[in-house]
Design a protein around this nucleic acid. Structure first.
Lengths: 157, 157
DNA sequence: GTTACATTACTCGGATAGTCCCTGTCCGAGTGTGCGTGG
DNA sequence: CCACGCACACTCGGACAGGGACTATCCGAGTAATGTAAC
């Protein structure tokens, strides 16, 4: 089980944008801030826009900013936007295949294994949903926030 | 985030073997029972042996059986054996890279994002650890268990 | 009847190709800004 | 001084190759049961 590395980029980008609510930040500037390849980061940010986490604006002084308040965004929103939201376990109903196939009337409700795996997945989701971006940013020291703003703000390029 | 399809095979195989404690079941017979490709299933069963979940015996009347009692095996043991145990989120310390790099003295403890993602992962693990194989098998109807035994037992091939 | 042994058939385990998703890259369409010009 | 229009430079969004993991497959080494033959 593996989450794409871009999930880390998306999470850091969102928390960084939450520290700069005044102006939009371009993908290129974010990439320079984190030392990441700009074009691929753009693709991930586009996914966040499509999911309603970020809003994009084109042209000069354009870029990305939070589409909603940081207090209404959770880690789950970001992970879902990247595509890591699918249940890692998918039941292929192999109990209905092969020599030991179960008759369909026994398979009305999902098999126990799928149920238990899904419960674990839901526990993971709820744990992520409990973390709000604003709380995360609020626990950062002023020094860290100041450095982030200095690196991302257009005037201090 | 995706768990390999072989995880499903491993989980079903372990629960099936837990229903046939009397004799060893070969990979070929398990594959026929579930309608799966036998060679690849063998590879997954070998992983379970290496992890100490199953024990293998060669030669005629050989095959696989549980290495420990079904009451001491959990879903987490099986998933770990397949290789789905790694934390899906890996922190690459991008906070120390790029223009906004944080000085090393600020990075003694892992970043908040990695901590929160790890907490969610641990919640997932604990949810899987709480499911014991023997309980799962015990909740099956006698009819289902009888069919499984009939399909896997050597005498009724 | 018992025992030792060679045969035999069956088992697992590791080494070998094919396919899909993630990573990384590029270029084109669209737009808000800023400046120059005219009134 | 102000309004207007234009050129510009900057932005995002989608289309195009490369690599690694999962899926699928094959064959060889090893072993326990078994039938046989000798004692």
């Amino acid at each position: 089980m593996k989450l794409p590395e871009s999930a880390e980029w998306a999470l850091h980008s969102v928390t960084a944008l939450a520290q700069v609510p005044s102006e939009a930040v371009s993908a290129r500037r974010l990439a320079e801030h984190f030392g990441l390849p700009a074009p691929y980061l753009s693709k991930q940010l586009a996914l966040l826009v499509r999911a309603g986490v970020l809003s994009a604006s084109t042209g000069p002084r354009g870029g990305f900013r939070l589409a909603r308040s940081a207090s209404s965004l959770t880690l789950l929103d970001v992970v879902e936007a990247i595509g890591g939201s699918a249940d890692p376990y998918t039941c292929h109903e192999i109990r209905q295949q092969g020599r030991g196939a179960a008759p369909p009337e026994e398979c009305i409700e999902p098999c126990l294994l799928a149920q238990k795996m899904r419960e674990a997945y839901l526990a993971w989701r709820e744990s992520l949903r409990a973390v709000v971006i604003s709380e995360l940013v609020g626990s950062l020291s002023d020094e860290v926030v100041a450095r982030t703003r200095a690196s991302l703000t257009r005037t201090a390029g």
